[in-house]
Computed example of a mutant assay.
Amino acid sequence: MHAIMTRLGQDHARLRRVLDLLESLLDRFHEGDEPDYALIDALIEYMDCYADIVHHPTEDLIFRRLIDKGVEPSEVFGIPMRQHPGLSRLTKDFRQSLRMILSEEVLLREDVEAAGRALIGNQRGHLIQEEREALPLALKYLTEADWIEIELAAPTLDPVFGAPDPRHFRVLYRQLIEQVRH
């Protein structure tokens, strides 16, 4: 398997863990508990930045290449490409709700929870569609030359100015797991 596909698979696995954790926190929030909103906001920031800067643009390169090659059904690739901006918007909306809570604005719990659950549900559906339909076709139809061109065009994070600190986010993730366990 090509390195980009390995990275995308790892991204999806990490995102699933984050979504599971977020769902557990929302379940507790629904019951009246108050999670550490700053920690959740930081984790959502990572999801938001990485998805917008690296993950979705890389997938779009792959899907565009498949469309350009005439691989059918092209809608299998068009759907996730159209979903990417919507997923970004849902993430930003949920993050905005968290920031409003952090700035002590009054929000209905139901609205915050609904924004989080919309994000989780849409992300999960999106992952399933990509993994069951779109990405297997990429493995089947893209050549080594295609993968090389995609890799050269794919965005990478700037190690100084654009790279979220993975250790920082791992610590946040562990802290959120501890919140769920207690």
Rank of each mutant, 00 (worst) to 15 (best):
L90V: 02
A115D: 08
I120H: 06
E131H: 10
R99P: 02
A118D: 15
G125Y: 02
Y141F: 07
P73K: 09
E133F: 09
M81G: 03
E105I: 03
H84Y: 02
M100V: 05
V71W: 07
P166D: 13
L152T: 13
R95S: 11
P73N: 04
F94S: 05
R95T: 02
T91R: 15
L139Q: 15
L139W: 06
I67W: 08
Q96F: 00
V112K: 12
D93P: 01
R132G: 00
E72F: 01
E113P: 00
L102V: 07
K140D: 04
E105Y: 09
S74M: 12
L98A: 03
E130L: 02
I67M: 14
E130S: 03
L102K: 15
I67Q: 14
I128A: 12
L66M: 14
Q123S: 10
I150L: 07
D68Y: 03
A134T: 11
P159V: 07
I128K: 14
Q129S: 08
R64V: 12
I150V: 15
L142W: 12
T91G: 12
A153Y: 05
Q129D: 10
G116M: 10
Y141K: 10
R89S: 04
E131L: 00
G125T: 07
E151R: 11
T91E: 01
P73I: 03
A114S: 10
G70A: 03
Y141D: 03
Y141N: 08
A138D: 07
R65C: 04
E113K: 14
A134L: 05
